[in-house]
Amino acid sequence: MKLEWRLAALKNGFQDATAYRIEFVLEFLGAALVPAAIQWVLWYALFTIGGATEIAGMTHAELIHYTLVSILFTQIRGGDLDFELGEMIRSGQLSNYLLRPVGVVEFIFLRGLAPKLFIAGFCLALGLLLSFFTELSPFRLVASMGLALLGNIIYYQLSASLAAAAFVWEEAYSLLMVKNMVVNLLSGELIPLNLFPASLSWVWQSAPFYLFVFGPTQYALGRWSHEQFLTQLGIACLWLVVGSGLVRLTWGLGIRRYLSLGG
């Protein structure tokens, strides 16, 4: 495994993402605070206006804790790399990358991962700082961040596989938008997944999205045991294998239909 170009791609991706400082900071803050604000309004409506004392076994304070800790992980998953891939396929810009002696899907991933790693470091430092004043365990925070980063890879693998639809349909924008909405809901970014009806819990459990935000938050808050965490880590590794296979399959088939338009 050649390390030099991978490190260079990370460095280059970070330079590119931070070329415009204000844009970088605003994107980070906006994406972190908006889901948190939605949750805060929801809990306020239910507990303060609605007069509820407990929802799905969770008190107002526990839900607020969930909201605050989940912010640390919502920033790690995601990004718009899949939209970028879809547009590159559609416009023919992918040609620039196909001619380089590196894997195009991995190259784009590494460039996009760089700012996420920076944000992960920042969020982890923030979490560790908070752990001095709260009951949060530093060990659990570090392990949760590791799971969130694995989630980032799985998310990209699935997204890149969907973006490959652009090889066939030329435009994959709507497909990726639908995927984003599903992920927003099933990752635990908007609401804790234990608010789902028990009869529907199979919906979020059968997808890997809960490993992105809900899982790390649960473990960081001490609501998952170490054994549960290890089991989920194993499941994440299985999803990594599945994701890798999907990328190979979809891109292997798709690239044969690539038109390299333009130029």
């Binding site: 050649k2 030099e4 170009w5 490190l7 260079a8 791609a9 460095k11 280059n12 330079q15 590119d16 070329a19 415009y20 380089r100 002696p101 590196v102």
Partner: peptide, 17 residues
């Protein structure tokens, strides 16, 4: 586009070893 050429060349150096 958003990077100076020297940064892009540095990446290409690593890619092509």
């Amino acid at each position: 586009w958003d990077l100076p050429a020297i940064d892009a060349f540095d990446l290409l150096r690593a890619i092509y070893e």
